[in-house]
Design a binder for these strands. Sequence first.
DNA 1: ATCCAATCGTTTAAGTTTAAATCATTCAGG
DNA 2: CCTGAATGATTTAAACTTAAACGATTGGAT
Lengths: 168, 168
Amino acid sequence: MPTHFKGCANIERALSAYINLFRATDSVSSKAAEQLESSGMTTGQFAVMEALHHLGPMCQHAIAEKLLRSGGNITLVVDNLEKRGWVRRERQEKDRRMVQIHLTPKGARLIAKVFPEHAAFVAKLMSELTADEQEELRRIAGKLGHGAEAFCMERFKKEKDRDSSQTK
Amino acid sequence: MPTHFKGCANIERALSAYINLFRATDSVSSKAAEQLESSGMTTGQFAVMEALHHLGPMCQHAIAEKLLRSGGNITLVVDNLEKRGWVRRERQEKDRRMVQIHLTPKGARLIAKVFPEHAAFVAKLMSELTADEQEELRRIAGKLGHGAEAFCMERFKKEKDRDSSQTK
DNA sequence: ATCCAATCGTTTAAGTTTAAATCATTCAGG
DNA sequence: CCTGAATGATTTAAACTTAAACGATTGGAT
């Protein structure tokens, strides 16, 4: 029964890769989060500050899209960053629906210090792998990430096709 | 200045691998969670049921350790599973501190049906990669995960050494 | 035998996240 | 000008997660 065996082997291989992928990410990112919090910053706060640091002032909608988070979440994170005096909200005159988020001088100084430290820490965690392995991981994980997005789009397309054929 | 360049390249390579790793995991696992929830089960519930399914009855502490979750979290998940009639608690007579968790017949039937479906779905997501890529991902992610644990142990050891030398 | 520390499960408080409802603003068409 | 759809931000409610405090139980040391 080759089909049975083939199916099992395929699924086992895929699951095994998935489990290791998940564990590795969990392990590394929880250590990264720990290090960040010892710098007095949550991962969400770091992500927003880092985006502002590298891309300049942004409105909340753009931040949410870039970080793959909900709008409500960004509102809360920006609230907390504002309380700490690291960012400020600036209502756009041109379109008063939008609020542009700026780093304050204090916030800019902080992220300029914390970002390289954090990057070095993550690099140290990743240095369990050789340079070649890191390259290969980057390539494969990149392919998988983009593939999963494509998978989603494909399903969405099918659903749309089905819906439109139903309405006929 | 070779050192400067080397450091930057190393950090960039490591960060790039980390970002892709994180994105890929986020993407795949959120789709996996979506599929599970369409089967009427949260990821936490699935993880506990799956552990019981493959390893047999376990006490909550063992479950928490295996799933890398807090004890309080397992208490809540088991509460919800119990409410749905999928597991039952059984106080150990030998050591009355422990509560062993058993699948009910209904729960066993459910996980026996849901697990293969979910495994097939995850395999389909992972099939964006070739068999060789999956093998390579499994190997590299495994190395990284174990390496990160070792990194943690190493730090722990250092802290212990420092503490014991302080008490001298 | 008694006390003390460790272990296990539960509860509580706090933080993070999302989806959904809501409010304000903009913009396009009649 | 008005109306209604679309967009951006906020608020709310719910779920999940953790750490810490707590109570019950065990086992070992004295």
